[in-house]
């Protein structure tokens, strides 16, 4: 199948990529753009490890075709730290022990960032709702809740 050229913004940079129609957004970002921070945990949209922000909305990139982001704005985990400084959510995940094996972490941080963009001062219940699409097997979530609450306070 011939490739199709698409143009999109990835982490603030205009990017042209030739993609196969059957590639997912995740596949394109990992294999073609070589941004391997976003992870595939299930491939069926159930774990959230591949979460990215497309046009300001959190999505599971394993279920979006690469062709579907033609002309759109994509933010991946690699787009969060600026000039070598970690995003407050990233720092909070380190500080509170919200990181263990790290495989869910990029997606979890994207979900947390997206939650805080919508709800800057969430309650614990709002945090639990906002992260429900992101599975973590290591932490039992306790320290992740702490991280998000911590980042929210740091952002004030």
């Amino acid at each position: 199948m011939p490739k199709q050229l698409i143009t999109l913004i990835v982490n603030g940079r205009r990017t042209e990529v030739a993609v196969e129609p059957r590639w997912t957004l995740l596949e394109m970002v990992r294999e073609e753009l070589r941004l391997s921070g976003s992870k595939e945990g299930c491939g069926t949209g159930d774990c959230g490890a591949c979460s990215m922000i497309v046009d300001g909305r959190l999505v599971t990139s394993c279920l979006m075709l690469a062709t579907q982001v033609d002309g759109r704005d994509v933010v991946t985990i690699e787009g969060l730290a600026k000039n070598g400084r970690l995003h407050p959510v990233q720092q909070a995940f380190i500080d509170t022990g919200g990181v263990q094996c790290g495989f869910c972490t990029p997606g979890m941080i994207m979900a947390a960032k997206s939650l805080l963009d919508r709800t800057p001062s969430p309650t614990l219940e709002e945090v639990r709702e906002g992260l429900a699409g992101n599975l973590c097997r290591c932490t039992g979530y306790a320290k992740i809740y702490e991280a998000v609450m911590h980042a929210a306070n740091a952002g004030k």
Binding site: L35, S36, G37, S38, T76, I77, E78, L80, A81, L86, Q90, Q91, F93, I94, V99, G102, T105, P106, I109
Partner: peptide, 9 residues
């Protein structure tokens, strides 16, 4: 190793 994990590196 926390920084590598939160940045996806």
């Amino acid at each position: 190793e926390g920084a590598g994990k939160v940045t996806g590196e």
